[in-house]
């Protein structure tokens, strides 16, 4: 009996080792259909970036609001207003402290939780009718200027790959997970 038991234990152990260390990684690593073309890391860069909350993807370069003022006035003010408050498109400035009121104003300053989001969005989608036209320094400059208009940074604070992810936005802690179903 004892030796049979030992065999069972040993077999189970061997099977487990086989499954965990041999079969599983191979399944995870092996292509089933061998379809799709391999891409080098260098080629991946050409596809553009997503910016993570910790700043992954942010390029070299940087700018202050002083430097960004000109690009904002040239490229952004036409739709967002010279002060970021006039529209006619999305209001970018003001509204801090309004979110719990009956006339909440959701702006970059009052609502957006991260400055990395602002960099990512301007870089990919702005200006509306000419996306992609801004150089990295111009994106940093317009980010800096919008944050400056919101009173979040000083005019001379430089926005770059180090400072943008570290900025404490006013509504950083204003988001909560989905509790639904909340009504039934």
């Amino acid at each position: 009996m004892s030796s049979r038991h030992d065999w069972t234990v040993l077999t189970t152990l061997l099977l487990t080792v086989l499954l965990v260390y041999v079969v599983a990684p191979q399944q995870a690593a092996s292509q089933t259909f061998n379809v799709g073309q391999p891409v080098t890391p260098a080629a991946v860069k050409d596809w553009g970036v997503n910016i993570s909350p910790s700043g992954d993807g942010l390029p070299a370069g940087g700018a202050t609001a002083i430097e960004g003022r000109r690009i904002y006035q040239q490229r952004c003010a036409r739709c967002h207003g010279i002060n970021g408050t006039e529209g006619p498109d999305s209001v970018l400035v003001g509204g801090q402290g309004s979110l719990a009121s009956e006339v909440a104003s959701k702006t970059v300053g009052s609502y957006w939780p991260l400055a990395t989001t602002l960099w990512d969005y301007i870089n990919r989608a702005m200006p509306f009718d000419q996306p992609g036209v801004l150089a990295a320094d111009e994106v940093y400059g317009s980010v800096a200027y919008v944050l400056y208009l919101n009173g979040i940074i000083d005019e001379s604070e430089r926005m770059d790959a180090m400072t943008v992810p570290k900025l404490q936005m006013p509504n950083r802690n204003g988001f909560v997970p989905d509790p639904r179903p909340d009504v039934d």
């Binding site: 997503n50 910016i51 993570s52 909350p53 959701k106 970059v108 609502y111 957006w112 939780p113 991260l114 990395t116 989001t117 990512d120 969005y121 989608a125 988001f175």
Partner: peptide, 8 residues
């Protein structure tokens, strides 16, 4: 990644 479409 907290993109614009899932934050603002």
């Amino acid at each position: 990644y907290m993109t614009r479409e899932e934050t603002s």
